[in-house]
């Protein structure tokens, strides 16, 4: 698992980058071409006039789709499939949402503060009927901060893998084994940053990890609030995978 030569590190990085590319919902060039395709006033109003539970259900479906791509990404990270099934589940349970948020920064246009959602770029106002403006603002701020780092696709791939493979997650059976995979991914990211002459990014990326934690706990807090208010929607209409991971 632990890369012993430069060639091994290159192979590890190449596998992670390939997995990232093959499991990304949208390609960078595709998104770039669509970057000025914005929702018009009527479309924004249609989202805003949805009820709270309708919009939550809609976003839960979109989020679940994104999580499924992250599961596929994880499967091709070298060493991931050698972990026990319990530990694979434990890592995805806590890490999948964080990787979705990292990936979201690829879908973000900093010039007009919009994110690609449902086929067009949407500002925070599109998500108004979720009734959790603080979470939406925090998520947009995070994407803005990530974009400011101007990461390459390779750097995003390695960082996503590092976010996922974290030996400090709860419920792990074999922490040591996860730690070994984590070290190899860390090695890969360090190698790529060194090659790109951007070693100073490592510190900034670790700062982003702390923000990801707080965003995920805010998401859970909002979900608890929603489930108390709309138990039927949360219980019967949310995608089963969303409930499994977050409820």
């Amino acid at each position: 698992l632990y890369p012993h030569s430069l060639r091994n590190i290159d192979e590890l990085c190449a596998s992670i980058v390939r997995s990232h590319r093959e499991t990304s919902q949208y390609r960078v060039e595709e998104l770039h071409a669509l970057r000025w395709k914005l929702f018009n006033r009527e479309e924004i109003q249609a989202y805003q006039s949805k009820s709270v539970d309708e919009m939550w259900q809609h976003c839960a479906i979109r989020l679940t789709e994104a999580v499924q791509y992250v599961v596929e990404f994880a499967k091709h990270i070298p060493g991931f499939r050698m972990l026990s099934q319990n530990d694979q589940i434990a890592l995805l349970k806590t890490g999948s949402m964080e990787v979705v948020l990292v990936r979201m920064s690829r879908l973000f246009n900093t010039e007009n503060n919009t994110v690609f959602f449902d086929g067009k770029f949407a500002g925070t106002e599109v998500f108004k009927s979720l009734a959790c403006g603080d979470l939406i603002t925090a998520v947009f701020d995070f994407a803005h901060g990530m974009c400011a780092l101007k990461l390459t696709e390779q750097q995003i791939a390695l960082f996503s893998a590092l976010v996922l493979i974290n030996a400090d997650r709860p419920c792990l059976e074999d922490k040591g084994r996860v730690q070994r995979v984590q070290r190899s991914v860390e090695f890969g990211l360090t190698h790529i940053l060194h090659r790109d002459n951007q070693e100073s990014l490592m510190h900034k990326l670790y700062q982003r990890v702390a923000v990801l934690r707080s965003l995920c706990s805010l998401h859970m807090e909002k979900l608890r609030w929603f489930s108390q208010r709309y138990p039927l929607t949360a219980h019967s209409l949310f995608p089963p995978l969303y409930k499994e991971l977050f409820a």
Binding site: Q68, V71, Q85, Q88, I89, C171, L241, E244, L245
Partner: peptide
């Protein structure tokens, strides 16, 4: 965790293309 995360477990079991 496997018992409580049947869908995720299934997704992990599925062979990837």
């Amino acid at each position: 965790l496997k018992e409580k995360h049947k869908i995720l477990h299934q997704l992990l079991q599925n062979s990837t293309s």
